[in-house]
Design a protein around this nucleic acid. Structure first.
Length: 909
RNA sequence: GGGCGCAUAGCUCAGUUGGCUAGAGCGUUUGGUUUACACCCAAAAGGUCCUAGGUUCGAGCCCUAGUGCGCCCACCA
């Protein structure tokens, strides 16, 4: 049964083949797992990568963690499902295609909607293919037969169905608001799609006209053409007398009617303490206008230009108009001051264009309206309760790490109505139609009402007109991804239905009429980066609790961001991006995955360096070589999953490694249940390299007995199983080399309680280890020639028999002892190196370097004296002795006793 | 302005309900070709656990204040 394996593990040789084998096995699909009906289900929805290009390190972490969870649960006998998919990422994708169109000298308007969309879809398709390929490279064991796309037909049906439900419940409404408008994208942006940039800005202090009594300050003089009021703080003595008065002024040629109003939000210390209110171009001013019944004058249009009716300014770009107005104010002696101030400019998160707040007719989701059929709670309240105390009879959604719950609540508390319409073409078209008949004077007023429907209506329900016009806008991309956990469990559009939910309020709920939905929803865990807690996680909770009347997932696991080795954010412009595919190519997928998972904790950012990945490549190779050694040297055919071992045949080392293996299984299982991936990985590494390879394997070279073969194979197989979720490729490859029929991916997870023998290891092998280590140490410190064989005498006291039986190990494990004498005790030996291991005295004869030896002994004495001093202080403290638990006190006493006896011996020698 | 986090070896980080002579990997130093592995083996050096108080028999861990760094939210007219 001798086999030859290559000396070094080369990931690139095997990975694709292994992935193919898994795929062909069908085990990614839980339907193909040999499970009984009672098997619990475990489901994860993959956060769909955007179809804007390629995967980055963030995706690599996500895939590594989720694959660990899925493989672990699959091995535990769960019906484990991981649903993959991609996100159409409306604005991001459209922007990307528009950019390439610009390179071709054309744009979307020239192409027209249909052709443009064809281009975007083609790009999205190509992007999807790349991504799927990369996801596979990461070893992801997701079920491709269930792959979904946020913009496919089934997901589209879910989107339109939920939109209609919300519309019918009065949650979706159309209204005019000041929205964040990107003049470049020519679309609205949600509040959280706006980014802020620190910059210097000019603050102009001026008078509207000579007949206005005081000055105001602004950074945007051009918008002052639309001022309808001036706001001051009610407490501000300077302006109290003006409150309520109305001034008619001529501002650079524009006649303005300005009412002086009081508002607490006005900061008395900023500028002049007086603020020109421009309802149409500032969200806060809009609110003031609503409260004070002010007129709204729109100044800037959707291209960022000054609208008609403002004389010479009309048609000018806002920035140009600003210059013109400043110039004019100067000429008229109205400009009093120009100050440089720090300013936060709001810009579009996609294209960096400055945002233009504009009033616009948009679709909104009301987050505060109470919903009868959901316990008379608003979607905001439902979403808070889902995390705070649990809803619909479910446990509360657990966020890991817990501290992010605070962020979640804070965000939810401050949530305002969500603007869901976007003026871009790529995305789910809003399922609203208008009757064309109304414009032709037919059938008013009924036809004023928009037609909202999950399916494209054939005719106007009011007048039968077939002349229907669909709303031009599309939906915010998060609307569709908010439905992801349940929409992906529908296999076809017709499974998505609205049913009466039987509540007293006769409410409706969305039902996915599929076996998948019944089996896998709510999903078990949602794993993603903390940066999209609000963007996405919160939205899924909102949409699912409302539409389905259930939670989308039970746990939320948030990973940190991947930064470069110096802690900088990876970005193309900084050129510090590490491409996961490069790492895979160079070091293998397993190494890449390990470096994503070990040395990091949830919610904390990680710094990634290539050296780290290389380190885990080394580890994969170590595991390979451990296996290579065992495979070549053991009789594999004698193995069985649980060999029966006779306690009387086992050596101390055998018992030691078996006990450690059992503990390792228990601890790893516990860690994985607690999402403690890093801890599990470190523990496994420590065991594999230090305990198993450096000790047990070495021992097995010198200590032969009947059971060695079975134990080596058993421990290795246990390790391969425990490591499999982390490093699926090497482990599967080795498993195959071990001539297993079944693939590792569906092997049963080991159980710590099924110990191979009920024998306790005690400290026997630890003692042997410490003797060997002590000898190695003494040799090195004394600079004994490495090849020089020396004689050793051990005074073993009560352990004479034990040590005698392990003499071979002590002589051979890198100690170079030619002659070993073991006795119960004896006189101290002169001119020898003296070391002690517990109660054992060891003399190394014929190699002593007196100076070095003195130094070493001195150092050791110092250490012991430190220990003794500390222990004495503690034990001398009555309060410690009386208040500390007995166990701790005894530990301390024990420590002191041992140290004192060692010290005595050292001083005597 | 509001909130969250981080600070432990040269570097990157662990440190679970307080019980430590404070750990790991990388790097460094010394030595090594040994029944798998130089992507290796053996040994070692390296720490005021940010500062100052407090609670406690006992603090890296809990509390208060401060310093430095990072992030998120709101927003500056």
């Amino acid at each position: 049964m001798k086999k030859e394996l290559p000396k070094a593990y080369e990931p690139s040789k095997y990975e694709d083949g292994i992935y193919k084998k898994w795929e062909e096995s069908g085990f990614f699909n839980p339907d193909n797992l040999a499970l009984d009906k009672k098997a619990k289900s475990y489901a994860v929805s993959m956060p769909p990568p955007n179809v804007t290009g390629t995967l980055h390190m963030g995706h690599a972490v996500m895939l590594a963690v989720e694959d660990i969870l899925i493989r672990y649960h699959r091995m535990r006998g769960y019906r484990a499902l991981w649903v993959p998919g991609v996100d159409h990422a409306a604005i991001a994708t459209q922007t990307k295609v528009e950019k390439s169109l610009r390179g071709e000298g054309t744009d979307r308007h020239k192409l027209g909607r249909a052709e443009f969309l064809a281009r975007v879809n083609k790009f999205a398709q190509e992007s999807r293919d790349t991504i799927v390929n990369q996801v596979k490279k990461m070893g992801s064991s997701c079920d491709w037969s269930r792959e979904a796309y946020t913009l496919d037909e089934t997901r589209g049906r879910a989107v339109r169905t939920v939109f209609k439900m919300m519309y019918d419940d009065g949650l979706i409404y159309r209204g005019e608001r000041v929205v964040n408008w990107c003049p470049r994208c020519r679309s609205t942006l949600a509040d959280d799609e706006v980014e802020y940039k620190e910059q210097k800005a000019k603050l102009y202090t001026f008078k509207y006209s000579d007949n206005f009594p005081f000055t105001i300050a602004t950074t945007r003089p051009e918008t002052k053409l639309g001022d309808t009021a001036v706001a001051v703080n009610p407490k501000d003595k300077r302006y109290k007398k003006y409150i309520g008065k109305v001034y008619e002024v001529n501002f650079c040629g524009a006649p303005l009617k300005l009412k002086i109003i009081a508002d607490r939000k006005v900061d008395m210390n900023f500028g002049t303490g007086a603020l020109g209110v421009t309802p149409a171009h500032s969200a806060t001013d809009w609110i003031m206008a609503e409260e004070n019944g002010l007129n709204i004058v729109k100044v800037i249009d959707e291209h960022g230009n000054i609208r008609e009716g403002f004389g010479e300014f009309s048609g000018q770009d806002a920035r140009k108009a600003r210059e013109m107005i400043v110039k004019k104010l100067k000429e008229n002696g109205l400009l009093r001051k120009e100050d440089e101030i720090d300013n936060n400019l709001s810009v579009c998160y996609r294209c960096d264009t400055p945002i233009e707040p504009l009033p616009s007719l948009q679709w909104f989701i009301n987050v505060n309206k109470k919903i009868k059929s959901r316990g008379n709670k608003s979607i905001k309240e439902l979403s808070i309760d889902a995390v705070k105390k649990g809803v619909f009879g479910r446990d509360k959604i657990r966020i890991i790490p817990e501290r992010f719950e605070k962020n979640y609540f804070h965000w939810m508390d401050n949530l305002r109505d969500w603007c869901v319409s976007r003026q871009i073409w790529f995305g789910h078209r809003i399922p609203v139609w208008y009757c064309g008949g109304r414009d032709k004077g037919r059938c008013l007023p009924a036809c004023e009402n928009p037609i909202v429907s999950a399916e494209t209506p054939e005719e106007c329900p009011h007048c039968g007109s077939k002349d229907l016009i669909q709303d031009e806008s599309t939906l915010d991309t998060w609307f569709s991804s908010g439905l992801w956990t349940f929409s992906t469990l529908a296999n076809s559009p017709d499974q998505i239905k609205i049913e009466n939910d039987g509540s007293p309020g006769a409410g409706k709920k969305l039902v996915v009429d599929s076996e998948d939905f019944r089996t896998f929803h709510p999903t078990s865990v949602l794993e993603t980066g903390y940066d999209i807690l609000f963007f996405w996680v919160a939205r899924m909770i909102i949409m699912t609790t409302y539409a389905v009347g259930d939670i989308p997932f039970q746990d939320v696991y948030l990973h940190g961001l991947v930064r470069d080795a110096k802690g900088k954010k990876m970005s193309k412009s900084l050129g510090n991006v590490i491409d996961p595919l490069d790492m895979i190519k160079k070091y293998g997928t397993d190494a890449t995955r390990l470096s994503m998972v070990i040395g990091t904790t949830p919610g904390n950012d990680m710094n990634l360096s290539e050296e780290k990945v290389a380190g885990y490549r080394n580890f994969a190779n170590k595991l390979w070589n451990i296996s290579r050694y065992i495979i070549t040297n053991s009789k594999l055919k004698t193995k069985s999953a649980k060999p029966r071992l006779k306690a009387q045949n086992l050596t101390d080392a055998d018992k030691w490694i078996l006990e450690k293996t059992g503990n390792l299984i228990d601890e790893t299982t516990k860690d994985l249940n607690n999402y403690a991936f890093s801890q599990a990985g470190e523990r496994l590494r420590e065991f594999t390299w230090n305990d198993f390879a450096d000790w047990y394997l070495e021992v097995s070279k010198f200590e032969k007995n009947k059971e060695k073969n079975a134990i080596l194979v058993y421990v290795l197989e246990s390790l391969l199983k425990l490591w499999h979720p982390f490093m699926p490729f090497v482990t599967e490859k080795i498993w195959e080399e071990m001539e297993n029929d079944k693939m590792l991916i569906v092997e049963e997870w080991p159980r710590g309680d099924e110990r191979l023998c009920a024998c306790a290891a005690g400290d026997n092998f630890e003692l042997i280890k410490s003797i060997i280590t002590a000898i190695r140490n003494a040799r090195a410190e004394n600079k004994v020639e490495p090849t020089k064989k020396i004689k050793a005498v051990i005074y073993a006291g009560k352990r004479e028999k034990l040590i005698e039986s392990r003499a071979e190990l002590i002589k051979n494990l890198r100690t170079r002892i030619s002659d070993l004498e073991i006795k119960g005790g004896g006189p101290k030996i002169k001119d020898a190196i003296y070391v002690s291991a517990g109660e054992i005295d060891i003399y190394l004869i014929g190699a002593v370097d007196k100076e070095k030896e003195k130094e070493r002994i001195k150092k050791e004495i110092e250490n012991l004296e430190k220990v003794i001093k500390n222990a004495k202080i503690k034990l001398g403290n009555d309060e410690f002795v009386s208040k500390a638990p007995e166990k701790v006190v005894n530990m301390e006493k024990d420590k002191l006793k041992k140290a004192e006896s060692e010290l005595k011996k050292l001083k005597n020698n």
